[in-house]
Design a protein around this nucleic acid. Structure first.
Length: 556
RNA sequence: GCUCUCGUAGUUCAAUGGAUAGAACAAGGGUUUCCUAAACCCUAGAUCCAAGUUCGACUCUUGGCGAGAGCACCA
């Protein structure tokens, strides 16, 4: 809102001196450069043939006074810097407190409905740390979008038919585990099946048979029984872990459904869009700058391309929405380009409304991750070991141990390590150092919040939500606080949760510096306002962490 | 080979084309009679190379060099 005010003032000033241009504002990275900075003078200097600094001066002289603005000055090569007024900041603090849980929300996307697909599991395969990336970013996007007023429908697309699943089913049967199927055994059975498939021609044939019968949903066979049981266990496991991580899905759409749906579409559009080649139905992506790939294989089953086309059809059939967003691994980038290209031919609306976002891969310093080898750190194992460290830390600092808090800290450490980097970038995980609790980490943010809350508990009724600063000069904390809603809106617009993470980190660090130099409970006339400020930081951290899927405990 | 990402301190990451390239970890030094030291303060340290566009380039263009991913019946 202040942003609009400042933009308008500059535009009016330009008009007065007979100039025109698109006014853009930015927050200077250095807080001493003011709260907003405008580069318009440098942009217009060339076409008017004037010196940028002189032009900037001229603009500044024509900017009308406003209660929210304390001073405007020209700096550097011709920036116009705006310093907001003390009254503005004071009112903002009161505003934050009055908003509480709503603080940060905007209505940029009010009225929009968005389908957001993420965390799609491969059933019969373990949920390893790679899946954590997709879940953390997907969930963060769901929540960030919600703060902008959108109606977000989170959904997931589990793979419940695939040759990989046939391998796992065979593995269970071969090991004789059908009576005692567990999620761990399924993981091992899968690795076993993968290995034996390549080693033995007869086993390969057997697994292919199983695959066929599963695709055809032939019930009553031993493999179907194992399949049903394993599918159920895998789904429970998926629900359990995503719930633990803070995700809920409004709907699951299964590949077994979308494969059937997709095949109908592909068949109907052959040879219009698709064509036959070597016994399979393919799409000539190479004619469109992409690549050729199989949609229905020679055995008559839809590949994952067909499944994704079928998924589009199901989504559009069941829901009415403005946009469908799918969050996946970067490796699938070309795959979705092809899906989108095909959609353009089959049903252009599908392509227009679909957005496929890719995130980077997670690499370990100790090597690459592959579920095929079976020896991947599982999400839960890592979570448990980080939780263990959190408990140790609590013991060290002599505070009461809290199992629940330790769990929240562990999740924060993991999620924050993922969510703090730009969306498309690969993430390198050194398990030891990436999951520390110090510095730019999730626990650091939680700790800052807990400290703030601790002061407030101690102060109890002494907080003063009125606007009496008691002589306190404007702090850097306040210069950051009011930006929060814009940060969220920006993150939503660009699909970049890390903007939120970086902002919170800066806010926490600014607060901690202030905290180290300023006694909050000092009995001065400013105490009430300092407490209000402390609460405003706590609220911002809590709401911000929430959007990242991270809890903010009261004590730690 | 073709298509697409990405090269920033020792390491992991920031920087809507803007001001002196910011943090954190690791290294070295300091801070606890005081609200949580999971904190704070100080020191040292970086844009792969070469041209070009621009008032201004880590960012855009081209060419090198280097790393990764995807390219027909796995997802």
């Amino acid at each position: 809102m202040v942003r609009e005010t400042v933009t308008k003032l500059v535009a009016e000033a330009l008009q007065k001196i007979g100039l025109e241009g698109e006014v853009e504002l930015e927050h200077p990275s250095d807080l001493s450069h003011g709260d907003f900075s405008c580069n318009i003078a440098m942009v217009l200097a060339k076409e008017t043939g004037k010196n940028p600094r002189e032009l900037a001066e001229e603009v500044v002289q024509n900017i009308s006074e406003h209660e929210d603005i304390e001073k405007v000055e020209v700096a550097g090569p011709g920036f116009i810097n705006f310093h907001l007024s003390e009254d503005f900041f004071t009112e903002q603090t009161a505003h934050v407190l009055s908003q509480e849980k709503q603080w940060g929300n905007s209505d940029n996307r009010k009225g929009e409905t968005i389908l957001l697909e993420h965390s799609s599991p491969n059933l019969f395969k373990p949920f390893h740390i790679g899946h954590l990336v997709n879940n953390s970013l997907g969930e963060a996007l769901v929540r960030i979008m919600r703060t902008t007023g959108a109606n977000v429908i989170p959904l997931s697309f589990p793979s419940d038919v695939s040759p990989g699943i046939a391998k796992a089913v065979w593995g269970v049967l071969d090991k004789g585990w059908e009576k005692e199927v567990t999620i761990e055994k399924i993981g091992k059975a899968y690795a076993h099946g993968v290995q034996r498939y390549d080693e033995d021609e007869r086993i390969k044939e057997r697994i292919d048979e199983i695959n066929k019968s599963l695709y055809n949903q032939e019930k009553g066979t031993p493999e179907w029984e194992v399949y049903e049981k394993g599918r159920g266990i895998s789904l429970d496991y998926f629900t359990q872990i995503t719930t633990k991580l803070g995700s809920e899905f409004d709907e699951l759409i299964f590949e077994s459904e979308s494969e059937i749906e997709g095949k109908k579409i592909v068949t109907k559009n052959t040879p219009k869009v698709f064509e036959e080649s070597e016994g399979a139905i393919i799409f000539r992506g190479s004619k469109h700058g992409l690549f050729d790939n199989v949609f229905i294989n020679s055995a008559g089953f839809g590949t994952y391309l067909t499944k994704d086309i079928g998924l589009l059809s199901l989504k559009f059939g069941k829901h009415s929405f403005n946009k469908s967003i799918t969050v996946t691994d970067i490796e699938q980038k070309h795959h979705f380009e092809l899906v989108k290209k095909v959609a353009e031919f089959v049903e252009p609306k599908w392509a227009e409304k679909s957005l496929y976002i890719q995130h980077g891969r997670l690499g370990l310093t100790s090597g690459k991750i592959s579920s095929r080898t079976g020896n991947v750190p599982l999400a839960e194992e890592i979570l448990d070991s980080v939780e263990e460290r959190a408990l140790e830390k609590m013991a060290e600092s002599g505070r009461e141990k809290g199992k629940e808090t330790a769990k929240q800290v562990a999740i924060a450490a993991l999620k924050y390590a993922i969510v703090r980097v730009g969306m498309g970038k690969n993430i390198t995980f050194d398990i030891e150092s990436s999951l520390s609790f110090e510095g730019d980490t999730g626990p650091y943010l939680q700790y800052t919040h807990a400290r703030a809350r601790s002061i407030l508990r101690k102060a109890e009724e002494q907080r003063d939500d009125s606007v009496n600063r008691g002589g306190l000069a404007v702090t850097n904390i306040e210069r950051l606080l009011y930006r929060f809603p814009n940060v969220l809106a920006h993150a939503a617009k660009e699909y970049e949760p890390h903007y939120v993470a970086n902002y919170l980190s800066e806010l926490a660090s600014t607060f901690n510096t202030w905290y180290a130099h300023e006694q909050v409970l000092d009995g001065s006339t400013a105490q009430g306002y300092k407490l209000a400020l402390t609460q405003a930081v706590a609220t911002t951290l809590k709401n911000g962490l929430w959007t990242l899927g991270i809890e903010a405990p009261e004590k730690m």
